[in-house]
Nucleic acid binder design. Structure first.
Length: 472
RNA sequence: GACCCCAUCGUCUAGCUUGGCCCAGGACACCGGCCUUUCACGCCGAGAACGCGGGUUCGAAUCCCGCUGGGGUCGCCA
């Protein structure tokens, strides 16, 4: 049997990391087994769904490296908003076989019922008053459709692929609405029809859907369909312990990207949130496909915490192939400079030197600033501390020595420094720091010789001269 | 409130199915040290957890019960 999974976002905002992780698990699970991974847009809530959100979500998914398969029988990605006729058809089946009935209770009435139940210390629910009234399609009052939940028959059960045996007594369920007064289906109903029509074999989704599984099972039953297998993934929670909210921009995939994390980093990070494979920490996309199984998924919720994220980020910055790193970096370079920054050999070499010094792409672009910026802004504190009058003479001598160095390479630069520090009885650091401030504007950079080498003779000399004027 | 779920270092987790190899392993973070022209990287080292209480057993992180704590769900939202 071919495994078919799906991710079904509702396009009501950016994709957050929890959604991305659910998508990843579905994707990796399917790919590992050589199956299909499908996408579906759940936009039955017309008020909140937008095309921009949809685009954002799709973009985020491909950004972390997920791809999806075409859905047989559908042109493009299925969207619930376009499946009205199919839902009506399925509703007709339920009505015909008595699994659903019409209810004319108003919202106010239902609310009152719930309040009453709550007072009695019961679960708030609909009291089934329309159940046996046999209301027809010709009813004068507007009606919605409710599922007739069997009142005998005990417990709905399924073997959750992550939680193990699960189920709920049907007496806990009320006759829930499956179609609104306007005839449009409610989520639970649409999901069942969609999953069935798309041939989904495994539903891998967040734990928050656990309690609605019995209801969906009942719908499958009413329709006479075989339900898929379910796997409920533990929730992702924020540092405070609460469920990640959809409205939190800080955890959107987009914002991780903007903070300078590579897609490799984000993918690896979310993979390890709730899933593990022994002691391994680093996983490429291919390794994930290779190793991902549902029994690697834990059963308790995980906090989203930045510590490991930074470590992973630097790991990938250190190890990514140059081309890929530069491709990731480009947008940060451009943003920092406020114009397109061409990556020449010097900048490429600088990036190599910066790999071990940058935790994020953003940080890397900032550290490289001195290279691609026209007018260097020198840090005031650093200037005050290192460009002092006593360094004027050595600095001037160094500049002159550098000006006449035979070739601009590490060895020659080092020789020039050596001569100056020996004459003045200085430690290398005593001269290197002022030079660093002179040519980079700050106290932090790659080793001084490499930095000079990368900057080139003309610019280095010019900046040294500039700095000499600032000596006080 | 009702129902459901969860519970190992600060964080992510291994171990739990098939009790002993676990006075609990790895990783991140933190702290200390080494290296060092700044910052990093790297290397070495330290501290740090089985929520509590009962069982069962020769033996429990692992099995059972209770408690506590945390979370999720109870919509004509998805």
């Amino acid at each position: 049997m071919t495994v078919v999974t799906r991710y079904a976002p509702s396009p009501t905002g950016a994709l957050h990391i929890g959604g991305a992780r659910t998508a990843l698990f579905n994707w990796a699970f399917a790919r590992h087994l050589g199956g299909q991974f499908l996408l579906r847009i759940e936009d039955t809530d017309r008020e909140r769904s937008t095309l921009e959100s949809e685009k954002l979500v799709l973009e985020a998914l491909s950004w972390i490296g997920l791809d999806w398969d075409p859905v047989p029988g559908f042109a493009g990605i299925p969207r619930q908003s376009e499946r009205g006729a199919r839902y009506r058809e399925a509703i007709g089946v339920l009505l015909a076989n008595g699994a659903a009935y019409r209810c004319t209770c108003s919202e106010a009435e239902v609310e009152a019922m719930r309040a009453r139940a709550k007072e009695k210390g019961e679960k708030p629910r609909y009291d089934r008053s329309c159940r046996e009234r046999g209301i027809g399609a010709d009813s004068a009052k507007p009606f919605c459709l409710r599922l007739r939940v069997p009142d005998v028959g005990g417990i709905t059960r399924w073997n959750d692929l992550i939680s193990g045996p699960a189920g709920e007594d049907v007496r806990e369920l009320d006759d829930f609405v499956i179609a609104r007064t306007d005839g449009t289906p409610i989520y639970h109903f649409a999901v069942v029809v969609d999953d069935h029509d798309m041939g989904i074999t495994h539903v891998v989704r967040g734990r928050e859907h656990m309690t609605s599984t019995p209801r969906q099972l009942l719908i499958y039953q009413g329709l006479g369909w075989e339900p898929p297998l379910f796997a409920h993934v533990p929730l992702l929670i924020e540092a405070g312990g609460k469920k990640l909210s959809k409205r939190q921009d800080s955890v959107s995939v987009q914002s991780y990207r903007d903070r300078g994390f590579s897609p490799e980093t984000v993918l690896n990070y979310i993979a390890r949130l709730g899933w593990s494979h022994g002691d391994l920490e680093i996983f490429s996309q291919a390794e994930l496909v290779d190793l991902f199984t549902l029994d690697g998924v834990g059963s308790s919720p995980s906090q989203v915490h930045d510590d490991k994220l930074f470590w992973l980020s630097q790991h990938y910055i250190k190890t990514l192939p140059r081309e890929r790193l530069l491709a990731h970096l480009q947008r940060f370079l451009d943003a920092e400079a406020g114009r397109p920054v061409p990556v020449d050999d010097g900048l490429a070499s600088l990036v190599e030197l910066l790999r071990e010094r940058s935790k994020t792409l953003l940080e890397m672009a900032q550290l490289a600033r001195f290279y691609y910026v026209d007018a260097l802004a020198r840090d005031a504190k650093a200037t005050a501390k290192f460009l002092k009058s006593e360094i004027a003479a050595p600095l001037r001598e160094l500049r002159d020595a550098l000006a006449s160095v035979p070739s601009w390479d590490r060895a020659s630069l080092e020789a020039a420094f050596q001569t100056v520090i020996e004459r003045h009885g200085l430690q290398l650091g005593a001269l290197a720091q002022p030079v660093r401030v002179a040519i980079t504007g700050g106290t932090v950079s790659p080793p001084i010789f490499e930095t000079l080498e990368v900057l080139g003779r003309d610019r280095s000399l010019a900046r040294l001269t500039e700095a000499l004027a600032l000596v006080h």
